[in-house]
């Protein structure tokens, strides 16, 4: 009862109110209240996430699992960032002269320094590495082996050229009235017609699936999100 029925009733009531608010304007206040509750819960999820991260990594370190050194680095980075943020290390004093009055991520603070000079360059570098792996994958995996692959290859060539100046230069001899046949023109056609048609079909399919799943959750048919295993 406590583990299954009450959480389901809360989910069903909240979901029903949000649906009702869409059609009944007077129920919009309730919807806002539920929204605020959700945000409080979402904030707790950050705490839960932090505890989970600490436990997982501590477990790896204590069991000396392969790669436990990485877990130690993760845990240390997490604790240092949390510590300097919570204790406002290096935060400049505010107008009243109090260090505790300033923002934890004010310019010059330790948290700000970590964001600017550790987190920001690290995450940008990791993302930039994609360019190298995309190039390597293009050489090794993008093969012209059947009709579907040929279509994909042709589309990739057109869009890759159409999204740069090279596409415009290569098809510059084509008269203005036939601009739809230039690389940029073909790219616009692929993105605006072929891609849009495919995306819309996928989106409508997903929306119908979401509606069906939501209904099952509201009616209590699907309770797998409660960890009960059924549904």
């Amino acid at each position: 009862m406590l583990r299954n029925t009450i959480p389901w009733l809360i989910a069903a009531c909240a979901g029903s109110v949000i649906i009702a608010a869409y059609f009944v304007p007077s129920a919009q206040g309730w919807q806002d209240t539920i929204g605020q509750w959700f945000e409080v819960l979402a904030s707790f999820a950050f705490v839960l996430g932090g505890v989970n991260l600490a436990m997982q990594n501590l477990q790896k370190i204590s069991a000396r699992e392969p790669g436990w050194g990485y877990a130690a680095v993760t845990l240390m980075s997490f604790l240092v960032t949390l510590g300097v943020g919570l204790f406002k290390v290096g935060v400049p004093a505010d107008s009243s002269g109090s260090r505790w009055g300033g923002s934890y991520q004010a310019e010059g603070s330790a948290f700000w320094w970590l964001y600017e000079y550790a987190y920001n360059p690290t995450i940008s570098t990791i993302f930039a590495l994609l360019a190298f792996y995309v190039a390597s994958a293009a050489f090794r995996a993008f093969r012209w082996k059947n009709t579907e692959a040929t279509l994909l290859l042709a589309t990739a060539f057109i869009v890759l050229l159409g999204r740069t100046y090279a596409g415009a230069v290569l098809t510059s001899a084509i008269p203005e009235e036939y601009s739809a046949f230039t690389f940029p023109g073909l790219t616009t056609l692929i993105m605006g017609v072929v891609n849009t048609a495919g995306q819309r079909a996928i989106m409508i399919g997903i929306a119908l699936g979401v509606a069906a799943t939501s209904l099952k959750v509201l009616l209590g048919i699907n309770r797998s999100y409660l960890g009960s295993g059924d549904g």
């Binding site: 995309v134 190039a135 293009a138 050489f139 090794r140 995996a141 993008f142 093969r143 290859l153 990739a156 060539f157 890759l160 050229l161 999204r163 740069t164 090279a166």
Partner: peptide, 11 residues
């Protein structure tokens, strides 16, 4: 982009 096209062709 030109390099990626060249790599696809070479591959």
């Amino acid at each position: 982009h030109l390099l990626i096209i060249a790599l696809i062709v070479l591959g």
